[in-house]
Structure formats: C-alpha cells, structure tokens
Simulated scan of single mutants.
Amino acid sequence: MKKKLIAVLMIAVLTLSLAACQGKDDSKDTSKKEKTEDSSEKKAAPKKEQKTVEITLPASLVGDSEATLDEEAKAAGVTEVTKNEDGSVTLKMTEEAHQNLLNEIKTGIDESIQEILQDKENYPSFDSITYNDEVTEFDVNVDASVYGGLESFVVIALYVEGNMYQSLNAVPEDQLKTIVNFKNKDTGEVIESGDSTAMDDSALSE
C-alpha cells in the first residue's frame, strides 16, 4: 500500500468533514443576515466568549497534505494553523467548531464504511463494520465461510481514520491506537485482530 494512498484517504476524510462544517456555518450566517433590519435599534447582547481548543496532528498523519489541511481547516472555522518544526500541525478553534469537526469526521467514516461494504467484488465476506464512540476499535463482521484473511487495504484505512479522529480529539500521539477485529458475524468470535501500533512508514511504503 503506497503512502500516497494513505494521504489521499486522510485528505478525503478531512475535506468532507471540514467542508460540511463550512456549509453549516454559511447557512447560519445567511439566516443571521435576514434578521438584521431592525437590529440597529437594539443594543447587541454581549457575546459569550468561547473557549479555544488546541490540538496537534502528528507528522505521521499530516504527511504531504499540509496545504490542503491549511486551506480546508481555516474555511471550517479553525482560527489558527501552525506548522511545527517536527512536521506536526497545531490547530486552534472554538469548542463549537471542534465538536462540529468531530461529528463530521464520523460522518465521513460512516460513508467510507458504506463504500467498503458495497464493494462485494473485493470484500464478499464483509457483512457489517461498527466502531465505538471514541473510534479506537472497529469490528468487521464477516461470513466465516467466505472470509479469506485479513484485508490490508481495509485495515490500513481504518487505522488512519481511527488515529485521525483520536488525534483531532486531543489524544496524544504516543497514545494513538486503533484496533481492528475481524469477527464471525454469526458467533461474534474474533478470527483475526490487529492494531495501528504495527503501522509504520515501512508498511505504508509497500
């Protein structure tokens, strides 16, 4: 699996998520403009200051996507994007923008899962894919009679998506860990399992 493919997967998730957040913000702005006719006669209520959330994406997840990340992040409400010396990127945003971002990342994950499940040519044994709320563990439920072994493309894609969500949820880089279990859909028995700590540059460059 080439490293560029992993970068593309990450960019796709971020672009979908951040663009969706932007769309929501734009719709709110439009509705506000429609209600400004009589606002000049009213004293504006003081705005409640929102806390700032600061998160750092490790260099291993940023890859070659810095330019795209910078553009899309700012469009979605991220107030500051800083490239650090070690290749990581620090994002600053409001709590509301942060929560919207996390929600939309999950929406992107759900859509990518549906695409995998619909690809019966390459993954005929897959029945369903679920994940926990923290996106630290995925269960790929399969038909054991058809299952032919751990699917590297799916595993790496889920590793990247899980680690990306955790990183955006302020989990430190040394604590990032996404587990993927392949389970018998009828019995719930784990057939195979792996986690993202085994994913390194050498594996991605193959």
Rank of each mutant, 00 (worst) to 15 (best):
K2H: 06
K3C: 02
A12Q: 13
L14W: 04
L14R: 00
L14M: 13
L16A: 12
L16T: 11
A19K: 07
A20T: 15
C21G: 13
K24W: 07
D26L: 07
S27H: 11
S27A: 12
K33V: 10
K33A: 12
K35P: 07
K35A: 14
E37G: 00
E37D: 10
S39Y: 06
S40D: 13
E41S: 10
A44W: 10
A44M: 12
A45D: 07
P46M: 12
K47I: 14
K47T: 13
K47L: 11
K51E: 15
K51V: 09
T52E: 14
T52N: 02
E54M: 12
P58K: 14
S60R: 15
S60N: 14
L61Y: 02
L61I: 08
V62G: 13
G63K: 12
E66A: 14
A67F: 14
T68I: 08
T68K: 10
E71D: 11
E72V: 12
A73S: 10
A75Q: 07
E85L: 13
D86I: 10
V89D: 05
V89P: 01
V89S: 11
T90L: 02
M93Q: 01
E96A: 08
E96C: 00
A97Y: 05
Q99W: 03
Q99R: 15
L102Y: 06
N103T: 07
E104C: 05
K106H: 12
T107N: 14
T107A: 11
D110E: 12
E111K: 14
S112I: 03
Q114I: 03
Q114M: 07
E115M: 09
I116W: 00
L117Y: 01
L117C: 05
L117D: 02
K120G: 08
K120Q: 11
F126T: 05
D127V: 05
D127F: 08
T130P: 03
D133G: 00
D133N: 02
V135P: 02
V135Y: 07
T136N: 13
V142D: 04
S145F: 04
Y147R: 03
F153V: 14
F153R: 11
V155Q: 13
V160M: 06
V160C: 02
G162D: 13
N163G: 09
M164Y: 06
M164A: 01
M164W: 00
Q166I: 10
S167G: 08
L168D: 04
N169T: 09
V171A: 05
P172C: 04
E173P: 03
D174C: 08
L176Q: 01
K177D: 06
T178K: 10
I179S: 05
F182R: 01
F182Q: 03
K183L: 14
K185V: 11
D186M: 08
E189M: 00
E189D: 10
S193C: 04
D195Y: 12
S196T: 12
A198P: 00
D200Q: 07
D200N: 15
L204C: 03
S205N: 15
